[in-house]
Design a protein around this nucleic acid. Structure first.
Lengths: 193, 193
DNA sequence: TCCTTTTCTTAATCCAGTTCAAGTGCTATG
DNA sequence: CATAGCACTTGAACTGGATTAAGAAAAGGA
């Protein structure tokens, strides 16, 4: 499977020599996933941090009443998974599933520890990765607090135009924090305009 | 001002020698802030990442209708500030203000760049810092999506018991994503039980 | 192909939380 | 010690979005 896009992304932040590149690649597990397949499920301890090469995954939390809440849609080039479960090796609370047939590179916990132990500079890449993700989450938090569902839907469509094409609407509703019924209502209202 | 707690916190994740410690301390600016004073305001580019030594700060977003949304309360030992503004040197969208008289250590952007450039191992500390903060934000996002205001209030009280003592209720309401009026009603309902 | 299952829509009703408006209590400052 | 200004409370009216229940339209799957 193709690792060059990931290496290119990392190389935007740190300069790698051949040895570092090949060591990093050597700890990755390339895996193909069918649409609908679970990569990770709640209760299990997460073994991998998941990098999407092609396709699209989503991770979500299922609450006590059985309702799913989408945390993230992960397209090509994104990392996903249950971070607390992965880093602390505790039971996962999120599920991660493929929305389309996908190719992923799995970074095992021990592999990440080895890479970071051996080549400290990878710390910078992950620092920047988490920093950016934190900013994204802060923005989303604020948007949830300060905008209506309609505004959030419009913003979502603008930010992730490609997702709207193939992600079932009920998951988009879940990501936005509303019911599928209400999203349907919003869409009709916008069509009529 | 006392830097030993910060150094101790960092030393939980990386081992520092004397030179590294003293260089890191040398880039920090110790500052005392009065209750109510602004550390950072929207529009300005953030010059510092802020570490709280004592007291309590909060950072918040003011939306287009003038309503404040609290992103974070930062107590002793926490870092705060407008992260996108700090890292990318773009205009801030958050305000940061002292809720009590406080002592902070300011880490200037150039200081952080110097530290990370000179001693790569500090990358690990910040990677873990952002990783933990990301996990906290994911949890909060999920809680906002899956719990009622009352449940969120109770969870808040359990997680940050000390804050409830001195943080004005309107800011707690803002953090919870509800109006002060509704928080007042929740509190009365809980008292009556 | 037909049948089953899942997704999406529509509409009626309901409720958690908002808005508005008025009143209470505290404390800061002259 | 007066008064002005916040923080907080209360209550009534309202609304954004949930719930429930039904039907229509897609999407598998044998």
């Amino acid at each position: 499977m193709n690792t060059s896009n990931l290496i290119a992304a990392i190389s935007k932040h740190i300069t790698l020599d051949e040895e570092e590149v090949s060591f990093f690649i050597s700890v990755l597990l390339p895996v193909k996933i069918r649409q609908g397949e679970m990569v990770e499920k709640p209760g299990d301890t997460s073994k991998y941090f998941v990098h999407v090469v092609s396709g699209c995954l989503m991770s979500y939390y299922t609450d006590k009443t059985g309702i799913d809440h989408v945390i993230q849609f992960a397209q090509a080039g994104w990392w996903t998974g249950d971070l607390p479960s992965f880093t602390k090796q505790i039971p996962a609370i999120y599920s991660t599933r493929a929305l389309t047939d996908s190719e992923v590179l799995l970074l095992p916990k021990t592999g990440m520890d080895d890479v970071l132990g051996k080549y400290l500079k990878f710390e910078r890449y992950f620092r920047i990765l988490f920093q950016n993700s934190l900013e994204t989450h802060q923005n989303r938090l604020i948007q949830n607090l300060s905008s209506t569902a309609e505004e959030r839907y419009l913003a979502f469509g603008k930010k992730y135009p490609s997702l709207e094409q193939f992600v079932p609407q009920k998951y988009i509703a879940s990501y936005l924090g509303i019911t599928p019924e209400f999203l349907s209502k919003i869409r009709r209202k916008l069509m009529e305009k």
